[in-house]
Design a protein around this nucleic acid. Sequence first.
DNA 1: ATATCTGCAAAGACTTTGCAACCGC
DNA 2: GCGGTTGCAAAGTCTTTGCAGATAT
Lengths: 157, 157
Amino acid sequence: MRDKLLQFRRYLNRAGLKATRQRELIARAFFATTAHVSAEGLYRRVGGRHPRIGLVTVYRTLKLLKNAGLAHERQFGEGRALFEHASSEHHHDHIICTECGKITEFENYEIEALQEQIVRRLGFLIQYHKLELYGLCRDCSVGAGRGPGTVSAMGSR
Amino acid sequence: MRDKLLQFRRYLNRAGLKATRQRELIARAFFATTAHVSAEGLYRRVGGRHPRIGLVTVYRTLKLLKNAGLAHERQFGEGRALFEHASSEHHHDHIICTECGKITEFENYEIEALQEQIVRRLGFLIQYHKLELYGLCRDCSVGAGRGPGTVSAMGSR
DNA sequence: ATATCTGCAAAGACTTTGCAACCGC
DNA sequence: GCGGTTGCAAAGTCTTTGCAGATAT
């Protein structure tokens, strides 16, 4: 995390931008998250401890973190964007539990390789990809699949 | 497409909903699209020929089509949702050109199989997945990669 | 006849932008 | 001191909702 902050400062510096108190605090809070925060969520984390920071600044700083290559923005099909650390050495994908919302990460070389093949065959030049699996995590599937009481998980809705 | 309309009417009927002129026209326009329309886009298609249909009704009808299992809603990370026919026998994934926005579909059994493995290993019960590859399509990659005039594609934005 | 629909306008959720005061460098 | 920055409020998207008049069954 020390690294990340340094990288961020370096980025700001190179880009002729300023290392303000707000940016520092927001970046710090961001790097302290486990993973997958919304702008709002990060705002609350920061705001809790340091009142004078606006949601707008969080949005702007997240954009800077993206430009600095330190954050990825994800759209998991809910309304809002979630941000995660980009530094992770390996690219990874996500499994999202449709019941409890838990997000698990994984990586698989073979899939990546197959993607490469497909893309090449279609004449595309790949830049990045997004693979999301949706389903029930172990806990939720047990609850829904077994118990005679909890028959849901297929509600009309 | 005749099928689809019938299916839709049957769905409405069963659900105690009404087969109105608007729903008929919107569904018809939807089934006539090649693929991937936004609500707005569908609205324009319908509205062009039949003035008295509101965007709101298009949204509502698309929701019905989803409930009827006839449409899928996709989020390709732009602001808006795109809808496509759900009837397609096979599941398929998408390649999106980041330059011109062209969307190409493909399917690959091996990837699906690998996904199954991963998911099982992690104890998840998969419901559906989303695989999106982003890159430059043949046309755009030629334009950007070669021509000395068109150096962009990496603009600071 | 009546419960469902439609379209308009308004509201909502999320994100961006305009602007005057503010603050790193 | 200058130019980038902040926070507020306002505007912008996309989508949903409230409501009175219209319509399918």
